[in-house]
Amino acid sequence: MHEEVIFAGFGGQGVLLMGQLVTYAGMMEGRNVTWMPSYGPEMRGGTANCGVVVSEKEIASPLVSEPTSVVAMNRPSLEKFQGMVRPGGLIIYNRSLVDVKPARNDVRVVAVPANQIADEIGDVRVANMVALGAYLGVTRVVGVDTVLEAMKKVLPERRHGLIPLNQQAIARGMEIAVSASAAR
C-alpha cells in the first residue's frame, strides 16, 4: 500500500485538518506517514493544500508531485491539481462548489455534494469531513475508527464537542462512496 494524496481547497475549509487526520490515523495503524502543508501568504484567504503520504514502505520524498488521489474542495483546487493525478488514480471533488467536471477520463472521479450534505446535517463547516468520508470510503487507506481516534489527538480539547457531528459527516460521505462504487 502506497498512497499519495493532496487535499486542497479554500483557506478555512479545513483541508489541512483532513490531511492531518489521515496522517495521524496512518501512524496509529503502523504505517509510515508524512504531511506537508502549503503555508505563508497564499494561505490568507487563498487556496490551501497539503500532501499526505501513507505507505507500508519507508517514505522517500514527502513532496507529492504525482498523487494517487486528489480531494478538491473548490474549483481552483480541482483545476490546479487534476492534471497531476496518476493514471488510474482518484479525483474526489466538492460538487457543491465546483460547477465543472474534471477533465480526466483515465482516473476515477467521485462527485460529493459536500456543502449540501454538511448543511443538511446542520453545519456547513463539516463539509471537509463529508469529503473525507467519501475519500475513506473509496480508498480505505485508513479505518474510520482510527480517524475518529486520531481526531481526539489532532483537535484541541475545546473542540472535542464537534466530534459526533464530524463522525456523522464522515458517515454520510462514506455512503456516497458506497453508492458511487455501486454505480460503477
Partner: peptide, 10 residues
C-alpha cells in the same frame, strides 16, 4: 529547509 520545518512526520 522549509519543507523539513513545515512537514509533519512521526
Amino acid at each position: 529547509d522549509a519543507i523539513l520545518g513545515q512537514m509533519m512526520e512521526p
